[in-house]
Nucleic acid binder design. Structure first.
Lengths: 236, 236
DNA sequence: CAGCATCCGCTTTGATACTG
DNA sequence: CAGTATCAAAGCGGATGCTG
């Protein structure tokens, strides 16, 4: 991208990260941690491989990412965020917050990736009981499971299955996310197909952050149903 | 801009505001308030006029801005942010915070605009004495003066001269900003050419926000460019 | 003058193919 | 696995022209 040549902090920032794909690469590294080229390519559907290579070079020369030759057990190049790159986290989160209301219409051609589920969780969920022992929830919303852990007041996410989860949530992504962010009642989610194994009470430890998930008018994600239909098993 | 077609809040946000110039248009409307087409064009040096027109159309159809036919005293079209557009403010501010360390090298071709001075003030300065009566400082760092007002714990900025300023700061932009954000001591700034008229004690009411501007934070990361673009251009 | 639209040369993007 | 090479199409910046 050509520089804007404006002596203004916004313009200078956009000179560095305003290029197409750049912030999505940062998103991948934030959600996935240090990644191989191929994993980045998988997590960025639609990017041309030459563009990915060029962007990685640019981001490296601007001090946002660093490449690291991993020793034999891995034996490949890893791309990771530098400390300076990690400071982009607030920007990513503000972008995500602003974009939350746009998430009601999964467009026809929209691509999904399971690990993107971690984003709404990071944006909108806290651990409201920091003093209790950690709790683990396994999320099965796609091909690859995700693990959510509440620990010392914070909520962490990572790829892969949990070892000894307190709870397993299985179902469509919007149902799993809805339950985690509190947009969706558990009974409602169950009525729409969510399945649970284990102790659902750990969900009570999750606290939606302030200014969190907006009440959308969309039907797929809404807190309350038009009229009450309350015959279900009360589990909340 | 083509959509990323990714069902992810970050990507959806970038689908809307990721296009070149879009966020700078929002910056202008945040700093300047409702603006005429020509004023926007002035505040966005480098933009092609057809692109500005196109972007304004896009932003309007996405609900970020609205156009308003002003009645006879003004008799022109004004562009203003919608409430939804105003919600982009946190994003702009995070971009500005991240970019602050890049502001040490005013590049050779960099263009300046006086009203951009308001950005660092909004980012890094608070009124530390909310109970005292408002204080007014006039900033003369370029062709057009700016006015800064501390009132009820907040700092406001606007274009134009003040009526009865408690203090007038005159000098190079970096000196004025440095004094306001606390990066620069008053005596140091004076030694470098800053001039003051009035009661300099009102500067004591300005409190740098947490995580504020740090003078030497940028290091030389942004300066060194080992390799940039592909070298296939024969530089003619 | 304010608010665009048109044309033109150049750069960037995206898709595909290919390589160490 | 981790990229390069190639190329058509789209986007961008600059100049200019048009309309109230």
């Amino acid at each position: 991208m050509r520089s804007y040549h404006q002596y203004c902090a916004i313009a200078k920032t956009l000179d560095v990260i305003g290029d197409r794909w750049n912030l999505l690469i940062v998103r991948e590294l934030l959600l996935q941690g240090p990644s191989r080229y191929t994993d980045l390519h998988q997590g960025l559907p639609g990017i041309a491989t030459n563009l990915l290579a060029e962007r990685l070079r640019d981001l490296e020369s601007d001090g946002i990412i660093a490449r690291e030759e991993a020793p034999p057990p891995i034996a490949t190049t890893l791309f990771r965020l530098t400390p300076r790159g990690l400071e982009l986290e607030p920007i990513i989160y503000e972008l995500g917050r602003w974009g939350a209301p746009l998430m009601n219409e999964p467009d026809e051609h929209d691509v999904r990736r399971d690990h993107w589920l971690a984003l709404p969780v990071r944006l909108f969920v806290n651990d409201r009981t920091p003093d209790e022992p950690p709790a683990t929830i396994e999320l099965r919303a796609g091909a690859e499971p995700m693990t959510l852990e509440t620990r010392e007041g914070k909520v962490h996410t990572r790829r892969g299955a949990a070892e000894n989860p307190d709870l397993i949530l299985t179902g469509k992504p919007e149902l799993v996310v809805g339950v985690l962010t509190g947009e969706l009642g558990l009974s409602t989610a169950r009525a729409r197909g969510l399945r649970t194994q284990g102790n659902t009470k750990v969900l009570g430890r999750l606290q939606p952050k302030a200014g969190g998930a907006h009440p959308t008018a969309g039907e797929s994600i809404s807190r309350s149903r038009p009229h009450k239909r309350r015959g279900n098993s009360a589990d909340n």
